[in-house]
């Protein structure tokens, strides 16, 4: 397992698949999609996607509804396979290992590639149980260790101070923005390598949104983030790179400032300026 920064992990996962991968990744690339195609039955939802994502960067994916953004990020942790009739072609390399290979362990992949969804989806359990859930299924039983992981994750998700006195309260009793940060803490608790976010702030008010955006800037020091967003200003504010998807194709993938200041493709320009359709 190659890591740019050493993580002091309390969790020891059996990363055999990942550990056996070559020890050098070119240019700190963490994910490389190579001629990746995806079909939902007859529907060719992703077409020859070639993209590469880098360590310690925030990459945004933008594009009109139905263009394949969610399908693409759900492909990165193979969640998309839960849909019956899905067919893929091409490669997605995660740290040089093709995640579509038969011998790839999906559980390990999902531990390394965490995901935060549009709607906060905490379990109907206590805040503590929500956050300690992942580490526990990975076999950590020691209460002290779990306490430490819970505190660290909640701190990283910028919600520790708000909930430290009520860790045993049900997570449902929190506001939407707080629930979303609990879900982020839950994702971080298993110390992933990459965090995927599908419209993580679309259900939140501006203040909670800014909190999550600040949090992303913090997290990027240790993790890599790929975020799907419909909020153009958000993509422009938080991301380093932006990919514009349209009808299952990647039209342009570029530095975020280029996408919003002077995009190279006319279709990108039409989309970011709102001239589309």
């Amino acid at each position: 397992m190659i890591m740019t920064k050493e993580k002091t992990s309390a969790i020891h996962l059996a990363n055999k698949d990942l550990e056996s991968s070559p020890t050098v990744t070119q240019n700190n690339e963490i994910f490389i999609a190579k001629n990746f195609n995806l079909w939902y039955g007859e529907n060719h939802a992703l077409k020859d996607i070639n993209l590469s994502f880098h360590e310690n960067e925030i990459s945004a994916i933008i594009g009109p509804s139905g263009c394949g953004k969610s399908t693409f990020i759900k492909s990165l942790n193979r969640m998309v396979e839960m849909v019956p009739g899905v067919l893929t072609e091409g490669e997605i390399l995660y740290r040089d290992k093709n995640i579509l290979d038969k011998d790839m362990s999906v559980e390990e992949l999902r531990t390394k590639v965490g995901m935060v969804f549009q709607k906060p989806n905490p379990f109907p359990k206590s805040i503590y149980d929500n956050v300690s859930y992942g580490p526990r299924i990975h076999g950590i039983k020691d209460k002290k260790t779990l306490d430490l992981i819970v505190e660290k994750s909640l701190r990283q998700a910028a919600i520790w101070d708000e909930v430290k006195d009520r860790l045993n309260d049900n997570a449902y009793g929190l506001s939407g923005g707080q629930q979303q940060r609990i879900c982020i803490a839950r994702t971080l608790a298993v110390e992933p390598d990459i965090v995927l976010m599908d419209e993580p702030t679309s259900a939140l008010d501006p203040i909670s949104t800014i909190k999550i955006e600040d949090l992303m800037q913090e997290l990027k020091k240790e993790y890599s983030i790929i975020i799907v967003t419909h909020n153009m200003q958000q993509a422009a504010r938080v991301s380093d790179k932006t990919a514009f998807f349209y009808q299952g194709n990647v039209i342009e993938f570029n530095d975020t400032n280029i996408i919003f200041e002077n995009p190279h493709d006319k279709r990108t320009e039409d989309y970011v300026t709102g001239r589309f359709g």
Partner: peptide, 9 residues
């Protein structure tokens, strides 16, 4: 309008 790209220019 939070203009971007050619609109902002």
């Amino acid at each position: 309008q939070s203009p971007v790209a050619s609109d902002l220019r």
